[in-house]
Every structure is written in structure tokens, then in C-alpha cells.
Design a protein around this nucleic acid. Sequence first.
RNA 1: GGGCCGUUAGCUCAGUCGGUAGAGCAGCAGACUUUUAAUCUGUUGGUCGUGCGUUCGAAUCGCACACGGCCCA
Length: 502
Amino acid sequence: MNEPMDTADGLLDENKLIALRRQKLRELRQRGNAYPTDFRRDALAAELHGAYGDKDSVALEAENRRVRVAGRILAKRIMGKASFARLRDMSGDIQLFVQKNALPEGSYEDFKNWDLGDILGAEGTVFKTKTGELSVKVDTLRLLTKSLRPLPEKFHGLADQETCYRQRYVDLIMNESTRATFKLRSAVVAHVRDFFNRRGFLEVETPMMQPIPGGAAARPFITHHNALDMQLFLRIAPELYLKRLVVGGFEKVYEINRNFRNEGLSTRHNPEFTMLEFYQAYADYRDLMDLTEELLRGMARTLLGDTLISCQGETYDFGRPFRRLTVREAVLRFNPTIAAADLDDLDVARRIAKGLGVNVQPEHGLGRVQLDIFEQTVEHQLRDPTFITAYPTEVSPLARRNDTDPAITDRFELFVGGREIANGFSELNDPEDQAERFRRQAEAKAAGDHEAMHYDADYIRALEYGLPPTAGEGIGIDRLVMLFADAPSIRDVLLFPHLRPE
RNA sequence: GGGCCGUUAGCUCAGUCGGUAGAGCAGCAGACUUUUAAUCUGUUGGUCGUGCGUUCGAAUCGCACACGGCCCA
């Protein structure tokens, strides 16, 4: 079942439609090169619509513009000695008008014999049909790639979600909304790069394979390097490497790349996902909240043309300043029955958490329990963009302690639509405090907490050279795209989401 | 991990009370020189997800499994 599909397996889903197309391919091979590469196009569909869409047929006739277009044939309407076909290229669709008389001897019969999904090149002149559709009046036609598999039905298209995910190529051929989602995803990433490049950040790439997986609380994927005979981990975050770079003097850096976490699959989780992380020296977490607002507000304006974002039937306002609440304030606001004093009493807080269905472990302190209560009762209610700040130190092993209250850190998370979008903080740059927190994490790991962090001695060494006061943040690109593309599942914004083998 | 729903032709979907499997599109044959879900005539196409069971008889009922979707943890 896990074997790569070989020819024998590949034949299992053969059917008469495919067999017929294979026969056509055999005939093509007998007539010469069945997969020619020498056709060159000189126009894209969208270029033609842009240049000639507004002109009338008289103007177009005077222009007599010859073009060579190429793409996949998605619709064919044969009416005796003339036909229409819809050709799709990367830019869009253009109609072909194919007349028997305009083609060389036998070419029209070949065309009629070709199938939907075939990829062809066409040469002719730009004109408008009597219904006003811009088209190419074809006088030369060539089949460039034979398609052996029939496409889904032309009207309903491909609807089966599993097939959309497993055979994304078919989904992309058939569904405009899928193409739009991934174009938007590309625009989101481009906007991020532009935003940080303009502000003097350096884009870097740090290891995806790490000897010590750090920077987050998550179970890693484990792999093995044969030549060095050593265990390596796919990274769960780039954080510790990026901060090493700030130590090195790259005072503003960012990275957009994949993280890997060995956890379950859901509409919100994929084992590999894309993270933006950025670090800025001589800034603190408040500066990053401001920067984040600016980034997302500008992104909404540029990509969606509006600061109101509609997603899954709700509208989120990115135009107004984002609400800011501490964890404690948020818990009290959304839980009228909880008193402020309850959150300071470990026994009371534990009782509340247990009552909410939280699996409270004996080693969990007040901070962890407070956060559990927050996650259970508040998170899902944060619809409009909201920064939650002042996370407990116990659950923030890499964040700087607050100057006046060492039990909390100068950290925030951004929530939109009940989902965490970003996590940032003033970085812990005290090497001795960091070493102590790593020790705590290592103890928790030894006690069986798979998500606890490793002790990273080289990272401590780097901090000992001196990390300037720095703030850093991570933004989940997939979740951001879900928001912008109005997608209900993370699989809808991943080209090839992880699925069980067929 | 738990609950609910789904899996039928290449695709989109019907399928009654358990009684020999249906449509549209695609395909194939034919007509048609301005169509655009083209139209008209004819027509091919099925391991009903897999396995076991109940039954004279299972797409249909039961159990198990696989894959997917949604919700919960």
C-alpha cells in the first residue's frame, strides 16, 4: 500500500475512455514526435483581453493582429465545418474559432479527434465573434501534449474534496476558486517580504534539520543522518537560530519557511506548516504589536481592498486599532463568575480548570492553570483582532520577564476569529535566566513531558556573547491565508495537504 | 481517541418496502460554418469502497475494516 504506484497498479483504474486516448497517442507516435517542444507562443489570454477586449470587430479587423497561443483545451463545440474551443493558459481563457476551410488539409479532422484536456498550440488572428467574444481565428493548430485522462464534468466540475486534495492538479484545472486561493497565498507571502524588506529586515534561511529542536513546545519529527550517524530533528521553529543571528549583528531578520510538528491532523493543523518569524533589536513587544497591526492592516487593504475581512460568515475589522487585554483581564471579562483572587490561589484555580474539563497535572503551576482557563473560556470568543498580553512566565520559557511582575512575561498573542494568528515577545536575553528556564524544561521533559524543551547549550553560549534587547514574533502564514481566503480548513490553503495514503 | 455523516459509470448525482443498476455531462457514431452548460438523432459504459454475515434473493439490513468530511477531546 505504501509502495510507489508502478505500472501495474497504474493500470488498475484504466477504463475505456483512457484506453481510447492511449490508442490515439499510439497513432500520434506513428505519425512522428507525439510530444513536440518547438512551439513558441507570443501571447497570453489575459494579455489579449487586456489589449483588445474593448475594441470592436471593425477595429480588430483593421488591426489584423496575428498571435500564437497555447494551453489546455477545456471546451469544444463542434458545428459541422466550424468549431469553437476554449483554451486555458496560466493567465486565463481565450476562445478559439476553428474553421475547416482556414486549416491545412486534414487538420480540422485531427482537431475534431482531439480530446478535452489536450494541450495545443494555435496560431491565427484576433477577432470578435458576433456575440462580442474576443477570440482567435485559427489557421494553424498543433497538438502539443496528449491528455490520457478524462477531465471531470464541465458544469459541476470536481466537487469531491478528497480528490481535490489528493489530485490538486485536477482541482486546479477545474476550480477557479482554488486557483484564486493559491494566487492569494502567493500575494500574502509577497506582501510580507515587501513589508519587511522595505523596513530594512534581512531575509535569512536557518536549518530545517536541527540537532536540538528548539523554539517551541511541540513533538518533533526525528530523522537520521547516515554519514554522521546522528539523530536529527525536523525543526519545530527557527527561533533560536534567528536570535543567534541577532547576536551576530543582523539586528533585523526574518524567515518564511516550513515548521514540522509531529501532531495530529485537523482543519487547523498540518504536520508541516509555514511560519513567518521576525526579530528586531532595540524593540520590545509593544513595538511588534504596532508593527503587526500595520502589517495586517496594510495587507488587507492591498490584497482585499478593504480592512473588513469576511471569513466563514463573520466579518473582522482590521481597520480599527486592535483590542489589547492581558490574559488575566480577558479571563475575568469573559468569566463573570471568576473573581480576581481566584486566579491567584492555585487550589481555587485548579478547581476552576478541572471544572472546565482541563486535565490538570500535579506539576502544573498557577501560570499554566491560568492559561488553561484562558484557552478554555476566552480564546474562541476573540473574534475581531485582539492582542492578549502578559502571559505567565511558566508557559513562556523564551520570553523576557516583566520588569515589575516576574510571574508574567512581556509577551502577546494575536487572535482573530477565535484562532491564534501570531505569538511574539520581548526576548529573554539574560543568559543566566535562560539557562535556568532550560533546566526547568529539561526536568519536565525528563518527567515525561514530550513537548518540553531541550537544554540548548550553544544557544546559551550565544546569549553569553550578548543578545541586544530584542523583540521577536511568529505569524502562522497558513492560518493567515485561511482568514484572507475565507477557507474553512487548512487543507484548502495547502497545495498538497497531508492525507493518509490512498 | 470518541460521535455523526458519506463512499454507486471518467465526473456530478438519483436509486422507493430487500426482488436482475438509473439520469445528466463526458465518450462513441451521425447531422450542423458564430457557439459559449451549443443543439438534434442514435449509442457504449458498473468489483454499488473492501470483507464477513443475515436472507430464496443485498447498492439497500447487520458487523468489521479502509478512506474522506463535520463536530468533540
